[in-house]
Design a protein around this nucleic acid. Structure first.
Length: 910
RNA sequence: GGGCCGUUAGCUCAGCGGUAGAGCGCCUGCUUUACACGCAGGAUGUCGGGGGUUCGAAUCCCUCACGGCCCACCA
């Protein structure tokens, strides 16, 4: 006998191993024979273990993988990890710091060794977690991609070279976003904005002759040391007279001009802007326009430079602000100090304020890359789910600026540009994508030096959907089979937070290099937040570890929990307790199966043979089975559920598929069908058992993509019990079920009638305080022959136990049939076709009275509402006929029930 | 300053033109031989406010409010 409670852990381990053993997850190109379904995983950064976001992302992809595999497609879900650039380097640098070291102590080469060691450990941990989650990915040697290893790395250099040859990559001195802490440039999109409370300081800049001058407003007083002008609007009456004059820059010996520029906002602050071309993008532009000199007072290390003057040089930028303010106060230059919400730019990797600095960087021109990627979305070659992301995407793409692709870190793809080392060389830099450059292609000089920067990590990410297949030359070897067969991929499953950072760039790169979109669909999911909707973070201490969750409730429960909550584009407020329900569902499934298997002990050899035949040939079951109402109903409902779940999955509505199946299995199959079979006339007939098994088997199939482990376990349990080999060995290869039978309207009506009667009785047992162990005699009065047949022929056996009545008598209520009189009470009925009579002696009269009154009140309200509708001539004349008919039917029904209950109440009061 | 998303039962969310739903929580009964990770029953909502379209609106349109997010060089 199996234990009463499902234990997920051993099951999960057993089946994952079996799947791997059978090489279930591999894919091979097979020409045009089968439809393809291809996905490249958004490669997790190797910065540590996976979080709930990865669990969501991976499970979604796994659901799609398994579903399409079951549909018989050639499915390839490409696994891999991302080197993660700055983020990963930060992790290892942090480790070094705890040892009292920096990367500079080790040097580039040693440091990179350290990085590769980390990548091995971390990469393994990630793969382990993905296996634990049940991911149907082929993780065999050589199948797992990594952005910094071939073939992906080769693709990066090749792409660089091609873009270089296109003339779209250039090097230039520009104002860029510099992260002082990470020590590197960042692209615009890697900068986040945050409102922080700060102050707006008003500083007086006296004229050279000592007379009062303009008062400027600034949020960054420390940069005044680098001011090279004061700018005012040419039309500004307050400052007009100052234009062209010079002011003395406080705290320095310098004098700077007052210039006029229409870019100045008259309404902001004092209307006078201090211009610091070295440290502000706007000022930089003004400086360029007016030919102003640039005084750099903040260095790449975030400390004040010598040009800041000896009082300030060497100070940290924050410390310098304090000192400048003190000194301004002392010199009586500070005129005002107002609280101010300042939009601060911060680094997306370390949250430190960004310093706009001018520096030499590599850029990629975007204008020509963008247009095809815009068209692809506009023409529907790439579709977003949900579609509401299309507009933001287009808006973003239409305002693209050149992409700063160089980073001053060590972990990444080193820029494949070489410089001639000949003294005073005038040779232009050269690109070598494949190998170190030995000699200068221009002058033949034998000593070359490679650019020390590395590429933005997103540069390699942009190529992912084809670099994984060995673009450009093919992989392995120079074989382009994979590339030609698997590209373009079918769908990209990813979060909206990297839509611009990543998805947009993949579309551009795909169109540029492959001349085809990288994926047809983009499933955009949200972020997994904590139960209050807050982002999970270590500092808030609200992080949920998927591993803990899986330990606690089982992998299938976690997966179901996530999948039943995921709506495209929407964040999930995730409470770990939400996994209790799914855990219980697993147990329910397990026990339902346990029950069905127990029933299989009963039949004899002949029936078992029959059942086996039917299980292996379901079409024969449909033809030969001796079905009754309940069988037809559950088979039809099963069919319906297959149809609806399939449609939901086709539309990326995994949540709907999860809910539908849950409701069907628990609400229909367990609560009604199994219960009915327990008490029906031939509970263990071959037909009943075959229906029980068939329906369960189909349900396990549609549930398998979401809950792979338990479904596999139970599915095998069924076949083992029958001593039959499961088709194709595993659920994953067993095929996706098709709808096979629909419920006839009559059957649906009849089963609902019976369910209604059973529920009616259960309800009035409660409402009238009839003790559970009390024998209850119910007299039925049926109004139609069908109702009579259903109750007394068809449902005879199961009606009593399910409704907990011990005796029932009845018959069609013919005119003249003597009423049972005052000794009986008639409780509410859900159907006009039947009324009930129970002896007053068996009920609690007070409770019954109040219950009836409540019921009457509710019916009266319903009556009013429907009556109002029918009284409205516009409704009757303009609404569709069927709606009017429906309302008429309803009002009849309600009227009858009301009259009935009023009678009952009257009867009770007598 | 633009744009997007949300506002439905105590909580987390489905529903998106025909008389309000789920899970969890809550209340009342039940050791009914698959399951107490269970069974049966129950309570709870002016579907954010206001306009409009419609015979009919939680559902479509407009508007406001409040959340959240994204983009943007107002010092």
């Amino acid at each position: 006998m199996l234990p009463k409670v499902y234990n997920p852990k051993p099951t999960e381990k057993k089946w994952y191993e079996a799947w791997v053993q059978s090489d279930l997850f591999s894919s091979k190109p097979d020409g045009d024979k089968t439809e393809r379904f291809v996905m490249a995983i958004p490669p997790p950064n190797i910065t540590g273990s996976l979080h709930m976001g990865h669990a969501l992302n991976s499970t979604l992809q796994d659901v799609l993988t398994r579903y399409h595999k079951m549909r018989g497609k050639n499915v390839y879900w490409v696994p891999g990890t991302d080197h993660g650039g700055i983020a990963t380097q930060n992790v290892v640098e942090k480790q070094l710091r705890s040892e009292g070291l920096t990367r500079f102590h080790l040097g580039r080469e040693k440091f990179l060794e350290r990085m590769w060691t980390w990548r091995r450990e971390c990469g393994d941990a990630i793969l382990n977690q993905q296996q634990r989650m049940g991911c149907a990915m082929d993780l065999k040697e050589g199948q797992v991609r990594f952005t910094m290893a071939d073939p992906c790395a080769g693709a990066v250099y090749a792409a660089f070279e091609k873009l270089w040859n296109r003339g779209w990559i250039y090097r230039g001195k520009r104002m860029i976003n510099w992260c002082v802490r990470c020590g590197t440039a960042l692209s615009d999109i890697e900068v986040e904005h945050e409102d922080r409370s700060s102050k707006l300081w008003h500083i007086h800049y006296p004229l050279e002759n000592g007379n009062p001058g303009p008062v400027v407003a600034t949020t960054r007083p420390e940069t005044m040391l680098g001011d090279t002008a004061v700018a005012v609007h040419p039309e500004d009456e307050r400052h007009k007279s100052l234009i062209g004059r010079r002011v003395k820059l406080p705290l320095t010996e310098r004098s700077i001009p007052v210039i006029a520029d229409t870019a100045i906002d008259l309404s902001f602050g004092t209307g006078a802007l201090k211009v610091t071309p070295a440290h502000d993008p706007v000022d930089h532009e003004i400086g360029r326009k007016h030919g102003l000199p640039t005084v750099r007072v903040i260095g790449f290390d975030g400390k004040m430079t010598e040009e800041a003057g000896k009082n300030y040089s060497g100070l940290d930028r924050d410390a310098c602000r304090k000192k400048v303010l003190e000194d301004l106060k002392t010199g009586d230059f500070l005129r005002d100090e107002k609280p101010y919400r300042q939009g601060v730019s911060i680094c997306y990797r370390c949250n430190q304020p960004i310093e706009p600095l001018e520096s030499e960087q590599w850029f990629l021109k975007m204008d020509e890359l963008a247009q095809p990627a815009i068209d692809a979305v506009k023409t529907g070659k790439v579709k977003f789910y949900p579609g509401s992301w299309e507009k933001p995407y287009l808006l973003w793409m239409e305002n693209l600026r050149d992409w700063c692709i160089s980073r001053q870190i060590w972990w990444g793809h080193r820029i494949p540009v070489w410089y001639c080392k000949k003294e005073n060389s005038k040779c232009p830099p050269s690109v070598s994508a494949r190998a170190a450059m030995q000699s200068c292609p221009h002058c033949g000089h034998g000593e070359m030096e490679q650019d020390s920067d590395v590429l933005d990590t997103w540069f390699s990410s942009a190529l992912w959907p084809f670099s994984v297949f060995g673009w450009p030359d093919g992989w392995p070897g120079n074989d382009k089979t994979l590339l030609n067969y698997y590209y373009p991929t079918t769908v990209m499953v990813t979060g909206y937070e990297i839509l611009y950072l990543w998805v947009a760039r993949m579309i551009m790169a795909g169109l540029e290099f492959m001349k085809e979109v990288p994926f047809k669909d983009v499933y955009i999911h949200g972020i997994v937040r904590d139960k209050h909707g807050k982002k999970m973070s270590k500092s808030l201490g609200n992080v949920i570890d998927p591993l803990t969750l899986m330990d606690q409730y089982g992998t299938d429960a976690m997966r179901f929990s996530l999948m039943s909550q995921v709506v495209p584009g929407r964040d999930i407020a995730f409470a770990p307790e939400a996994t209790v329900g799914p855990r219980n569902f697993c147990n329910k499934l397990y026990n339902a199966t346990r029950y069905v298997l127990m029933q299989l002990d009963a039949p004899g050899a002949k029936e078992l043979d029959q059942i086996k035949t039917w299980i292996q040939r379901p079409e024969r079951l449909l033809k030969e089975g001796n079905f009754d109402l309940a069988d037809r109903w559950i088979l039809g409902r099963c069919s319906e559920t297959i149809e609806q779940a399939t449609e939901a999955l086709e539309n990326y509505r995994v949540d709907e598929a999860a809910r539908l199946t849950y409701e069907f299995l628990w609400g229909d199959y367990c609560d009604w069908y199994i219960e009915i079979t327990k008490y029906r006339q031939a509970p263990r007939s071959a037909t009943v058992l075959a229906v029980l098994i068939t329906v369960l088997e189909r349900a396990l199939k549609i549930l398998h993509p979401i809950m792979p482990f338990i479904t596999e376990e139970l599915w095998h349990g069924i076949y083992d019990k029958l001593l039959v080999d499961p088709p194709k060995g595993f659920l994953l290869s067993s095929g996706w079920p098709k709808p096979f039978l629909s419920v006839s309207p009559e059957d649906r009506k009849n089963i609902n009638f019976l369910k209604g009667v059973i529920t009616d009785i259960r309800v009035f047992r409660f409402d009238y305080n009839i003790p559970p162990d009390q024998n209850l005699t119910v007299r039925f009065k049926t109004k139609t022959q069908t109702a009579d047949d259903l109750l007394f022929k068809h449902a005879r056996h199961f009606l009593h136990p399910l409704a907990k009545i011990t005796d029932a008598r009845g018959g069609v209520d013919k005119p003249g049939n003597p009423d049972a009189g005052n000794n009986y009470l008639s409780p509410p009925s859900s159907s006009p076709d039947v009324t009930y009579l129970i002896p007053k002696s068996e009920i609690d009269l007070d409770k019954t009275r109040s219950r009836l009154q409540k019921e009457i009140l509710s019916l009266e309200n319903q009556l009013k509402s429907i009556q109002a509708r029918l009284d409205n001539p516009a409704f009757v004349s303009r609404a569709p006929e069927e709606e009017v008919a429906k309302a008429r039917g309803q009002i009849d029904d309600v009227r009858k029930k009301l009259a009935h209950n009023q009678d009952s109440l009257q009867n009770l009061l007598n």
